[in-house]
Each structure stands twice: as structure tokens, then as C-alpha cells.
């Protein structure tokens, strides 16, 4: 494993023989996967196949039973809780199906939050938020709270939030699942554009085959195994 860290600096994520079960139910059964810098991968599979669990394990929200996950050549299993939290803060951006914006914060503040968590200098942070708001086309809605935005606008805020702190990997869990086809299409285009522009790797869970158009690679998961 040590050689992996030294020899593959282009690997953002490497999953090796990842296993996870809940009680008697095996959800991940020896998953292996490598994602390189800037690569965009669609992960497809039926309900209960382990897609979301895999994302949770990558972000350190769930622990593996066996195997390992390396993010930027660092083993997640070797990190303690605060190390995992720091990894999530600094290296991962997360996009949820149902947006998960903080309801009491404005769009601007929601986007700014991850940058604040990594202690980005104030001037740089504000400049970046403004820039990304412009990129997602929501400059005029910056002071609106989530309940004042449409579904598509909310997801655009969520994408901006996932990218504001320059993560190495963006995990997207059905980002268009709660949107109509037009908004979904817009969101996908934006996601593609930004990930290319920022050179961020993307792992997107989706049910929708048309969503895979923005990805370089499509993989499937069935019964806890990548096929």
C-alpha cells in the first residue's frame, strides 16, 4: 500500500477490497476502484446495491469492516475521527439529492461555510464565493434563503458549496433526483463545466442513464460488487 501513495500521485481515490455489512447483510463485498484527477465517474446500480453506502464510506461517515480507502494516498482507516473530519472539510465536496442546504443561512452563507471551515482568509473567501455565485448564475439570489429558491437554484447552490474549498473529489448522490428534466440538465452541465474548470474528480451516483453523459466512465454496482 505504501507504494501506492508514493507511485500514484495522480490517483485521487483508491478503494481496495472494501467490505461493509449491516448485521448479516453484506452491502459492499470487496469493492476495488481507482479514480484519477479530473476523472468523472458515474456509479449506477439498483436500489440497495450499496451505492450510497460506498459514498458514505469514502467520505468517512461510515467505517469499512475490511479493506481500505485512500484519498490522496492517505488511508482513511488510519485516520482518527478528527482526521476524517479534516479530510472531509478539506478534500471532499458533497452534493445531496435533496440539496441539504442549511435553512437558516442565505445562499451566500451556505456557500461560504466550507471555506470558513478550512479557515480560508476572509477576502479570498468572499471573492471566491462571489465568483462561484456568478458561475452558477445566482449572483442576484445570494441573499436569499433556501426556502426562497427553486429546486434547480438550490442544487446550484449545493454544487457551488461542494466546490468552494477546491476539493480533490466531489461525491454527488443523485444530484438531479429531485429536479425536473430541464433543471436536471442545467445542473449536470454546470457540474461538468465546473469540474473540468477546477480539475476535480467526480463520483456521481445516479439512476438516470442520461445523466452519465457528463462522465468519462460509467461503472455499475450490483449486490455490493462493482461490475
Amino acid at each position: 500500500m505504501a507504494s501506492l501513495k508514493e507511485n500514484h500521485p495522480e490517483h485521487v481515490l483508491e478503494i481496495s477490497s472494501a467490505c461493509k455489512s449491516f448485521g448479516q447483510l453484506g452491502v459492499l463485498k470487496g469493492v476495488n476502484l481507482i479514480i484519477k484527477k479530473g476523472e468523472r465517474i458515474a456509479l449506477m446500480g439498483p436500489s440497495g446495491s450499496g451505492k450510497s453506502t460506498l459514498l458514505n464510506c469514502i467520505s468517512g461517515v461510515e467505517n469499512l469492516d475490511s479493506g481500505d480507502i485512500f484519498l490522496n494516498n492517505s488511508s482513511i482507516r488510519e485516520l482518527n475521527r478528527s482526521g476524517v473530519e479534516a479530510l472531509r472539510r478539506e478534500s471532499i465536496g458533497y452534493i445531496f439529492q435533496s440539496f441539504h442546504l442549511l435553512p437558516t443561512l442565505t445562499a451566500f452563507e451556505n456557500i461560504e461555510l466550507p471555506a470558513q471551515l478550512i479557515d480560508m482568509p476572509k477576502d479570498e473567501r468572499i471573492e471566491k464565493v462571489r465568483k462561484i455565485l456568478k458561475l452558477v448564475g445566482l449572483s442576484s439570489r445570494s441573499q436569499h434563503k433556501p426556502d426562497e429558491l427553486s429546486g434547480g437554484e438550490r442544487q446550484r447552490v449545493a454544487i457551488a458549496r461542494a466546490l468552494i474549498h477546491n476539493p480533490h473529489l466531489v461525491l454527488a448522490d443523485e444530484p438531479t433526483g429531485s429536479l425536473d428534466s430541464k433543471s436536471g440538465d442545467d445542473v449536470l452541465s454546470l457540474l461538468e463545466e465546473l469540474s473540468i474548470e477546477q480539475g476535480v474528480a467526480l463520483l456521481m451516483v445516479t439512476h438516470d442513464r442520461t445523466s452519465t453523459r457528463i462522465c468519462n466512465r460509467v461503472i455499475s454496482i450490483q449486490d455490493g460488487c462493482l461490475v
Binding site: 467520505s59 461517515v61 475521527r81 478528527s82 473530519e85 479534516a86 479530510l87 472531509r88 472539510r89 478539506e90 471532499i92 458533497y94 445531496f96 441539504h100 442546504l101 442549511l102 435553512p103 461555510l113 466550507p114 471551515l117 478550512i118 458549496r161
Partner: peptide
């Protein structure tokens, strides 16, 4: 709960 889960995904630490 949802807010805390979101913050957890964003890297909000236990201490925070």
C-alpha cells in the same frame, strides 16, 4: 437532524 448530518458531511467536527 438534517442540518447536523449535512454539517457532518461538510466536515464539521464533533467539537464544533
Amino acid at each position: 437532524s438534517r442540518t447536523w448530518f449535512t454539517l457532518d458531511y461538510l466536515g464539521f467536527s464533533r467539537k464544533q
